[in-house]
């Protein structure tokens, strides 16, 4: 347990051994991701209460946060792998992969560390829209933090071959593109008090970018 927690410390400090060494095995890091993702998800889903049927929203959200991250990761990985190979970075791919997985875990750790704020917010306001906005903010800041960490983990790789900088940027583009849509599809995470508790929201199926395009259109009055 203690070594596991030290693994988190290494991770957050972006110690080189996270990428190169063997102190934290991928399995351990994935375990971290699941545990902490579960933790934040549970808190996130507690908006409508934790008793009765609402308990299930807590469970669903807890399952869905690690799901969101791992599905996004899995879908984005093939193209990242092939383009890495073409750019001649295949020999470093194991290191890149470790940096990416570590970033996923770090994202959940950061999220979990924000969980008390979310709980306090829920305790002080029953406004669903505000809760939605607050969670967006939390996810946004956790993502930015994780990406900064990724850039730090990538620094030795970029030093060895500047082309890694292109790849890490490309990863961010692909990951964000898929991740935003994944978050949209996997709704609800918070659980509107007026809606029934469900794992997926049927009517929520749709494309986030198309919605955004429509909003832009409406704003400009086209």
């Amino acid at each position: 347990m203690r070594t596991r927690l030290l693994g988190i410390d290494d991770l957050l400090r972006a110690q080189p051994r996270v990428v190169v060494g063997h102190t934290s095995s991928p399995r351990q890091i994935i375990l971290l991701m699941i545990v902490f993702g579960f933790l934040y998800g549970a808190v996130m889903g507690s908006f409508g209460g934790v008793t009765g049927e609402r308990f299930w929203q807590v469970v669903y959200s807890a399952v869905k946060v690690p799901m969101l991250l791992s599905l996004t990761f899995a879908i984005s990985l093939p193209s990242f792998f092939v383009i890495n190979t073409i750019l001649g970075l295949r020999d470093d791919f194991a290191k890149s992969l470790r940096a990416l997985v570590a970033t996923q875990a770090a994202l959940t750790v950061v999220l979990a560390s924000f969980a008390p704020f979310t709980a306090l917010w829920y305790a002080s306001s029953a406004d669903y829209q505000a809760a939605l906005l607050f969670n967006t903010l939390i996810f946004g800041s956790a993502s930015v933090t994780a990406q900064l960490l990724l850039l730090r983990l990538y620094r030795p790789l970029i030093a060895s071959n500047p082309r890694h900088r292109v790849m890490v940027r490309l990863w961010l583009v692909i990951y964000a593109f898929v991740g935003i849509q994944m978050g949209w599809v996997l709704r609800p995470f918070i659980g509107s008090p007026n809606a029934a508790t469900t794992f997926f929201r049927q009517e929520a199926w749709g494309n986030a970018y198309v919605e955004v395009a429509h909003i832009i259109m409406r704003v400009f009055g086209w």
């Binding site: 879908i75 193209s79 092939v82 383009i83 593109f177 599809v185 198309v210």
Partner: peptide, 26 residues
């Protein structure tokens, strides 16, 4: 070979958006 390898590697992303998107232009 290079072109189609890249194309196929984007397959999962395309399927994911197919699953969740109504919009044909998108």
């Amino acid at each position: 070979g290079v072109m189609l390898a890249v194309l196929a590697s984007f397959g999962p992303i395309v399927v994911f958006f197919s699953v969740s998107t109504e919009s044909y232009p998108f």
